[in-house]
Nucleic acid binder design. Structure first.
Length: 907
DNA sequence: CCACATCCCTAG
DNA sequence: TAAGCTAGGGATGTGG
């Protein structure tokens, strides 16, 4: 049998634990495969006579099945040879955490290793299996190891199991669902009092010809055949679970199901059961009932054999949006409308037996449709599936977890192969100690930008800088010189200190992993070029993206205080090489390279040419900005520099710098900014061109400035985007000034009653990031959260982005933040002056100030002339002032005289 | 006017 | 089984 592994767990059996693998076969069958015979174990490092200790362990702990002495390396530090350690096998997986602390009390016991690996992961790692990987099995019988009914097409026991090479994805089945509850008095429904009245489900592929079904717990007249009505809530719920099991989905999704629908259904079922109703919420492929656990403030849901995917957190982490309500997400990402019945009107719609009820049903249907559309259309899972395949973690773990478990997984596999053990996760005390330590982790180097408007800036960056640094210098937990010194004596000393053995002495595990990931990525990208169809291309693209994510996860992991393998020495070595590297790069370009001559379609250095003719196209280079792994190089010449010219220069720089670096470090030519405006570190806008085939594709890219920040209003970003376009593309500062004056005038004369849409443009959002009580200062969004709580009884949940506008008044700014909906409903006046003086003009001034424009000249009010000037005319255009300034900018940048009339530049 | 703390969000 | 990392700008507010 061949199938793709979706999920894994184990069951207890008198013969020992039995692994269960759940999956789907290529022909569409769902599979449950029992694998007996794998045993749980962990390692112990001890002093003294190990065989005596082994005997003692077996005597003292009857859950220990056997103890073996095996040679192993310790987790950290270069070591000349392995040392004997104990490998302790237990009866049951749960015995490992039960005894791991107690065994340390025995004489000689020093440390235990690999004591917190989930049994199913231990199995996958040791057998070389991967999440979403394909396996082939030898089927020996149909006898399952338990009496539980298994909800799969094919159930069997495997005598052998092997991974097979295959990157495609099985025909997965998706179900999305959404519930509607009847609120009491329009307030937030709670399972104690509000019944579930409807459940909508969407299927991909269709279920018996239905893309959607809506279950309704009352009689419905005149609805289509995809509406099923029931006499009671209990009947509806029971049918829901039957249909759920019958469809047998691999991926169970919805929008905010983890924090709402699933806990609500589970709680509601419990309440109904307590009142004598008979509801069995069977959802697992093993028949397990629906349940959830609260971990911290997060709800974890797991359904054996299936993967639970809440679209909300996935969208949060993959898209930067101002709000993550289903309404807004559907609009922004799918261009679809969510349909809604206001909570206050729900009861009315529900009690209606005609049009309103049918409308309500359609609205409910739409929610599960939107959820499944988000997952399928946006291909939210592609990347996760690829990450599971590459890292080996199960899909559920990849979807739920962070980078830590993926890195752990890869490290465990490679450590195992090389005979090294891995420590368990650090205790809270150890983490606290690590955090308290005075020694910190320094990050990347950010070069001070040359502020103002520049032309012809070539942008280059280092390909996977940190991973390549680790590979180039053999930086690893396993190569740091601690206990043993290498015989040859050859070591690498990073700028930050510490000492690492070179790859000749011993190649580090991390560099090896990174190398294979990098190699696979190059290979995958190569395959993408000859992909035969779109689906193959997509799988490959997801794979190369997953490889990139994993490549970049190792550095962060090494500096993460809760990581099993935490090493500041290592993390600091990486960043210190990075800082040294970018500074060296700048010095090389400004000094050694500094001039490039363009001739006959090639770029040369002075020394590469016999002589320089007066007519030669000489380009002078200087680094004007850089952040961590990038350099921005300004090209100056007496002649016009075309994009192709700049491209030649860029490639020349990239090749030259790369040649001076150890393998596999590489500086890559990225793009060309025809014009670039640097405001500050991490804040700039460029009119940038990238090569796409034979063509150059251009556009404006903004980094860090207010237009890309969600805590500024739309009015600001729209205005800024416009003036950036005018300045960068057209070089027309005059037009930019006029535009700002027009906008300011418009804001000065806002009439909210005539133009309620304007509120949208004035709305800012901020994340309600922690419990209200842990804020030390008042915050505008906190004010609004409090007001909402007063009005509705429920505060917005932590993690939500809260929209607000600033209303007129004399109070402090923070107290004048107000819910935009409330403002609209009650016609509350907006603080126009705040929007002009605090939202619009400061960012505008940061940009136009470069050209000598004075803000005072921008604050223009047609209705109230005389605010800043005393004539009847609109204020004098400030353009004259910046004309001089502009001339300076130009002569500075391009020492050639251009004619300029209304526009600054004339391309 | 300033230095400083706090908060948010972004770049990489 | 909660959580990759640091650098940095800018707004607001406090206290001198």
């Amino acid at each position: 049998m061949n199938f793709q592994i979706l999920d894994a767990d184990y069951i207890g059996h008198e013969s020992g634990p039995v692994i269960r693998l759940f999956g789907r076969a290529e022909d569409g069958q769902s599979v449950c495969c029992f694998v007996p015979g794998f045993e749980p174990y962990f390692y112990m490092n001890a002093e003294g006579e190990l065989d005596k200790l082994a005997t003692m362990l077996k005597e003292r702990f009857d859950v220990i099945r056997k103890v073996e002495i095996v040679p192993k390396f310790e987790p950290v530090g270069y070591q000349v040879s392995k040392k004997p350690m104990l490998c302790i096998t237990t009866m049951e997986p749960r015995n490992v955490p039960e005894i791991r602390d107690d065994v340390l009390n025995l004489p000689g016991a020093k440390e235990v290793y690999e004591t917190d690996i989930l049994f199913r992961n231990r199995f996958m790692i040791d057998m070389g299996l991967h999440g979403m990987g394909w396996v082939t099995t030898e089927e020996i019988s149909e006898t399952p190891f338990s009496n539980d009914h298994i909800y799969c097409d094919s159930v069997f026991t495997a005598s052998s199991i092997k991974e097979t090479e295959k990157l495609s994805v099985a025909p997965l089945k998706h179900i999305s669902f959404d519930i509607e509850c009847l609120p009491i008095d329009g307030s937030m429904p709670v399972p104690e009092t509000s019944p579930v009245i409807m459940i909508s489900m969407s299927f991909g592929p269709a279920f018996n010809g239905h893309d959607t079904l809506v279950l309704v717990s009352k009689k419905v007249e005149g609805a289509g055949e995809d509406v099923i009505s029931f006499d009671t809530e209990t009947q509806m719920l029971n049918r829901f679970f039957e249909l759920f099991q019958e469809y047998d989905a691999d991926i169970v999704s919805g929008y905010n199901i983890n924090d709402f629908d699933i806990p609500y259904i589970a709680d509601r079922v419990a309440i109904l059961s307590n009142s004598g109703e008979s509801v069995r919420p069977t959802v697992g492929r093993d028949g397990r009932v629906l349940s959830y656990r609260k971990i911290g403030n997060r709800t974890m849901v797991s359904i054996p054999g299936r993967v639970v995917v809440d679209a909300l957190p996935l969208i949060r982490s993959q898209y930067s949006l101002k709000r993550y309500t289903l309404r807004n997400v559907a609009k922004e990402l799918l261009d679809m409308e969510k349909l809604d019945v206001a909570p206050s009107e729900m009861e009315e719609y529900w009690l209606d037996d005609g049009e309103k009820l049918l409308k309500f049903i359609d609205y409910a249907r739409r929610d599960s449709e939107l959820a499944i559309e988000l997952i399928l259309k946006l291909r939210l899972l592609d990347k996760h599936i690829a990450v599971a395949q590459v890292s080996g973690s199960l899909l559920q773990e990849v979807v739920d977890g962070g980078q830590t478990s993926m890195v752990d997984n890869l490290l465990l596999r490679e450590y195992g192969k090389q005979g090294r053990v891995i420590p368990p996760k650090p205790s809270d005390e150890l983490v606290a100690m690590r955090n308290r330590s005075s020694e910190g982790l320094k990050g990347g180097e950010v070069l001070e930008p040359k502020k103002g408007l520049l032309e012809n800036v070539v942008i280059l960056d280092y390909k996977s800088l940190y991973p390549t640094i680790m590979m180039a210098h053999n930086l690893c937990y396993t190569t740091v010189v601690e206990q043993d010194r290498p015989a040859g004596g050859e070591t690498i000393v990073p700028p930050s200190g510490g000492e690492f053995v070179s790859a000749h002495v011993s190649k580090g595990i991390m560099p090896s992993i990174l190398e294979s990931l990098l190699q696979r990525r190059v290979e995958t990208k190569r395959k993408m070029k000859n992909a035969s169809d779109e689906s193959e291309y997509r799988v490959l693209d997801a794979t190369q993206l997953a490889l990139k994510i994993l490549l970049n996860s190792f550095y962060g992991y090494s500096g993460y205080t809760r990581a099993k393998l935490y090493s500041l020495t290592l993390a600091n070595a990486v960043t210190s090489f990075g800082r040294e590297n970018i500074l060296n790069t700048r010095a090389l370009i400004n000094g050694g390279i500094s001039k490039v001559i363009l001739k006959d379609g090639s770029a040369y250095f002075t020394e590469e040419l016999p002589s320089i003719e007066p007519d030669d196209h000489v380009v002078s280079l200087s680094v004007v900005y850089g952040d961590t792994d990038s350099v921005f190089v300004q090209c100056a010449s007496k002649k016009e520099i075309s994009l192709d010219d700049a491209g030649l220069v860029g490639s020349k720089i990239a090749a030259t710098v790369s040649a001076s670096l150890p393998d596999p470090m590489e500086l890559e030519f990225e793009s060309i900014a025809k014009r670039a405006l640097f405001i500050a570190k991490k804040r700039y806008a460029i009119w940038v061109f990238e090569r796409s085939g034979e063509e150059w594709k251009g556009g404006i890219k903004v980094k860090g400035m207010e237009t890309v920040r969600r805590d500024w209003c739309e009015l600001t970003s729209k205005t800024l985007n416009r003036i950036l376009e005018l300045v960068l593309k057209e070089g027309n500062v005059e037009a930019a000034v006029q535009h700002v004056r027009k906008v300011v005038d418009g804001v000065r004369n806002i009439d909210v009653r005539n133009d309620s849409d304007i509120i949208e443009d004035l709305t800012m959002t901020r994340m309600f990031s922690k419990k209200a009580t842990s804020y030390k200062n008042k915050q505008p969004h906190l004010t609004v959260a409090e007001k909402i709580e007063e009005r509705t009884g429920t505060p917005p949940p932590v993690g939500e982005r809260i929209p607000f506008v600033i209303i007129a008044g004399k109070d402090l700014f923070v107290n004048r933040a107000e819910d935009p909906e409330y403002v609209k409903e009650n016609n509350i006046p907006i603080d126009v002056d705040y929007y002009i003086k605090k939202q619009l003009l400061p960012p505008v001034e940061r940009i136009l100030g470069v050209f000598g424009v004075d803000v005072a000249n921008l604050d223009y009010d047609s209705k109230q002339k005389g605010l800043f000037d005393f004539s009847d005319k609109p204020p004098e255009s400030p353009v004259k002032k910046f004309k001089q300034k502009e001339a300076e900018v130009k002569t500075q940048q391009t020492p050639v005289n251009r004619k300029s009339q209304s526009s600054l530049f004339d391309f």
